[in-house]
Structure formats: structure tokens, C-alpha cells
Amino acid sequence: MIPLRDLLWVAWYAAAAAAVVAVLGLVLLHLLRSRSVAVQLAVVGVATVLATVSGIVVITLLMYLDEHDRAVALAVVIAAGTVAMGVSALLGRRLVAANRVLVEAVRADPYRPPSVPLPKELALLARELDAAYDRLAAAHEREQALEASRRELVAWVSHDLRTPLAGMRAMAEALEDGVVSDTETVRRYHGRIRQEIDRLAGMVDDLFELSRIHAGTLRLYRQRVGLDDLVAEAVAGTEPLARAKGVRLRGEAGPALPLEVDAGELGRALRNLVVNAVRHTPSDGTVEVVGGVEDGMACVTVSDACGGIPEDDLPRVFDVAFRGETARTPGGGGAGLGLAIARGIVEAHGGRIGVANAGPGCRFTIRLPPAG
């Protein structure tokens, strides 16, 4: 039986020899860190085999074997090492081939996940790349839709600015040149100019609000308010417009439901919906604003008598500058930003907004989470 002391010495020399080879392999890997995976795998395989072989060689030299036994041991070690390096190279080639398949899939346009089986890590990377490409495609579609909306917005705003500006210029020149001098006409011109200025100021305010929403800089100052208070304020604020057009405006809300919202911003969104409903409802029509609770969410519906919205236009109602068919064209002008602003404000509160045809017109619905 070999004494324990001798075994410890053998283990020490074998470990020292293997450690020297391992250190050399690590240094070589550091120098080749920017090379291909195949080269690095080859270095790992060779270093592993040489570390084992070096330990065995050292042991054969220390054990004072005769020439025959030493030659046999070294032959066995060399043969085993050669086979081990071959297996290592084969496995490395398979891994490199799988990596090449993934690279070719990434270079393809459009990207498709590889159909061949991959190692677990590369398969996980392929799934993550697939998800990333889906997110990029969705972001690209949103960017294209937003760019189209911006172009449409510029066209609409240019048209809506040009008309009142031309009218104000004509009236200002008439006043300046003395073409009109009677008191009644001068007063009417001044009143008309003031109305157009207020309208343009509202358009500029809407553009500023929409830019904050799109830029993600809309600041909400939340406070606890009642849903019934929001409905009452929206109805009271649009009552003069409804009365002037001959539209009946009704508002009601169930028991007070507390909300943690920015009352000013959310009130603006709700007023936009009510104003939109009044403008598109014919005289003697009715607009109803109803607040309540549905599936644990605060719910406000604004129903009008506009005659309905074409089904193809429903998904685009909240797009920037969308006006749709003649039945939805605002009688009072505007840049078509009210509904887009309403959607941005509601979504900033963590809520949802939608529209559907119902009865003699359509119904806009806002859903908001109640206060915690």
C-alpha cells in the first residue's frame, strides 16, 4: 500500500503541473478574447487535455518506472489526450455551427427564429431576439402612425389657421382703410376679430397640451375628488354651448365615488368629450353624461345623437387631427385635437377610453381606477 505521504506528494506535483498549464491557458484566452468562439473553445480543450496529461507525465517521472512501463503510460496518455482533443474540437464545431445559424437568422430580413434545434443558452437568446424584434416592429409602426398623424395635423392646422387669419386681416384692413365707418359694423368687426383670436388661442393651447402628452411631460397633480363633482363641472361648463345650439344636455352620477386624479386635466378631457358630443348633435337632440361604477372601475359615458360613426372610422376617432365623415366634422372648426387630448389625459391617469355606436349616435366611455 502506498504511504499517505507519498500520495500527497504525487497529488501536489500533479496539481502544480496542471496549474501551470491552466495559467498559461488563461493567459492565452485573455490574449485571444476578441477572436472567434471556435478559437477560444480550441484553447480551452487543449488546455484541459494538457493539464491532465502534464499531471500524469509528472507522476510517471516521479514513480521511477522502468522504460517499458513509462513508454506504455505515456503512449496511453498521448492516445487518450489526442482523442479528448478531437472530441473537444468536434463539440466546439457544433457550437460554432449553432452560433452561425443564429447569426444568419439575425442578418436575415425579416428576422425569423432558427428552425433547427439550438443549445439551451442560444435558444433562449433566439427567443429574446424574437421578442426584441417584435417590440422594434411595433415601435416602428407606432412611429410611422405618429409621423402620419403629425403630417395630417400640420395640414389641418395650416388650413384652420389660414382661414381665420385671412378673415382677421381683411377686417383689420377694412377698419384701417376706413372702408367701414359706421359704429355697428365696426363693433361687429371688433367682436368677430376677438372671437377668432380666442379660437386661435384655444388651438395653440391644445397644441401645447398635445405636445406635452406626446413628450411624456404632462404633470398630474392628483387630489381626491368625487366622480359626481367632475360630471357636474363638465356639464355646467358646456351648458352655454348646448343652449346656444338648442341641444338638451343632461348629467347625472351615482353615489360619490372618490378618485385620485388631476381634477383640472381630467375635467378638460371630459369637457372635450361633451363639447364634441354637443357639436355633432343636431338641434333638439340630447347629450347625456352619466357617471357610475362598472366592474370596480369608475365609469363616465357621454352619449350623443350624431347619427353614428362609420365602423371603419371607429379605431381612428382618437387619432390626432382625425375628423372623419361629414357627420363628424366639427361645426365650430378646431384642429381636431380634442379627442386625442382626452385619450392622452385618460391614459396618463392609468385609465382607458373608447367609443362605440349606440342608439341615435355614439357613446364615449372613460374608465378610471378608483382611489385606493
Rank of each mutant, 00 (worst) to 15 (best):
A172T: 15
L241Y: 00
Y189S: 10
M168W: 09
T183H: 09
V290T: 15
G254C: 08
R187V: 05
G264Q: 13
L210Y: 02
G251K: 01
G292F: 06
V225A: 06
D229M: 09
P282S: 13
E288Y: 04
D205Y: 11
E176Y: 14
V231W: 01
V225E: 02
L218R: 09
I197C: 05
V179D: 15
L241H: 00
Y221S: 14
R248M: 07
R212E: 15
T163Y: 10
D182G: 04
G178P: 10
I213N: 05
A232Q: 07
D228R: 13
E252N: 10
A201Y: 13
H190M: 15
I193A: 05
R268F: 13
R199V: 00
D206M: 03
L259V: 07
H190S: 14
R187Y: 10
G226R: 13
C299V: 15
L218K: 10
G296E: 11
R271Q: 12
L249S: 02
A232L: 04
I197N: 00
R271D: 06
R199Q: 12
L207D: 04
D177M: 03
G246I: 07
R192V: 03
T238F: 01
T185M: 08
A166H: 14
E265F: 05
A174T: 09
V278E: 03
S211Q: 11
I193H: 03
I197M: 11
V235I: 07
G251A: 05
N272S: 14
D198H: 14
L175R: 05
E209I: 12
Q223W: 04
R162K: 11
T286G: 08
L266K: 01
E288T: 15
E288K: 10
C299H: 06
T217H: 07
E294K: 03
H280A: 02
V274L: 09
A269M: 07
E260Y: 04
H214V: 14
Q223M: 14
V278P: 01
T163N: 12
R250A: 12
R250N: 12
A263E: 09
G251Q: 05
Y189A: 14
E294P: 01
V278A: 06
F208G: 11
E239L: 14
G202C: 06
E209G: 03
A269D: 02
D229N: 08
M168L: 13
G246S: 09
R250W: 08
D229P: 00
L241N: 00
P282C: 05
L210I: 04
C299N: 10
V180T: 10
S283A: 15
R192I: 01
A253G: 02
A277V: 05
G251C: 08
G191E: 15
R192E: 06
M297F: 13
E209K: 09
R271E: 12
T281Q: 06
L230F: 04
A277N: 05
H280V: 04
H280L: 09
L266P: 01
V290S: 07
A172F: 08
D205S: 15
E294W: 11
T238Y: 01
G178W: 13
G267W: 02
